[in-house]
Amino acid sequence: MRLNSIGYLIKSGFKGIFSHGLMSFATVAIIMACLIIMGAFSLLVVNINDMIAGLEEESNVVVAFIDENLSREEAIALEPAILAVPNVDSVQFVTREEAADDFQADYDEALFDVITDDTFRDRYVVQLQDISLMEQTRTDLYAVDGVAKVNAHLEYAEGFITARNIVSIISLILIVILIVVSFFIMTNTIKLATFTRREEIAIMKMVGASNGFIRCPFIVEGLILGLLGGGLAFLAEWGLYGLVASELVGGLTGTFISVVPFSEVCWPLLAAFMGVGVLVGVFGGSSAIRNYLKV
């Protein structure tokens, strides 16, 4: 293909967009709408996952109490042995005095008289890696010499595992449905946009333009529309997210709701939007004219 042809093809791709302004506008709008809905849902899932992960981390902790017969030094010396237990992420040694102070800070003064330092034991607060292995880890910690007792909230752990599974399955199903539906809508909009051009295509065929030559401007056009739709959808999503996030944070302070900052998700989101835009544009553009090319 000669150079002047390549220039012509790209130019006519651009020209097609403007000379079919309404259809191009509709295409970009549909691509935007689909991406915004898909993006909003994905961001919701990201936030729910983040919240669950936050709560999970707080609960992904067991407390190993140290045998009272051990001296403070012996208790501190246990740290490597506890760290060596599988699934242990980090440990924090808490003396009985610190534990008593914490307790007093949290509870009513009336209890202070009854509770002395002796009531508490030295302990390790153990942060785990995987919450689903909590029961096994509790057993392993209990087997360490010098550990008298291990407190673990297994019921929380199970709750989180269930919640996480439900969220992943539902969001996976919904995202797949959304992608399929959006893809269908977006490529069909592009097809519809090219339907008004079938006469032009018929003339090109009649005078002997090659299929590649006929297809190319449509693909360029689809590509541009896809990129435009993806880019605009990204900007809209950004604005929308900022709005909703500030509304939530402002209105619900003090609750467990926290919002993932947009900067943390913006690159993957942009890449996904642009990728879907390009895919839909090129695929839509080329499949749209396939029917007309058969003659």
Binding site: E199, I203, M204, V207, G208, A209, F213
Partner: peptide, 24 residues
């Protein structure tokens, strides 16, 4: 006739050359 309405007379004829790769 099968002309393209949004193109001028000149463009309709030039179009047939352009799409088979003729130079400007």
């Amino acid at each position: 006739f099968r002309l393209i309405d949004k193109m001028t007379v000149y463009e309709n004829v030039a179009f047939a050359m352009r799409v088979v790769g003729a130079s400007g």
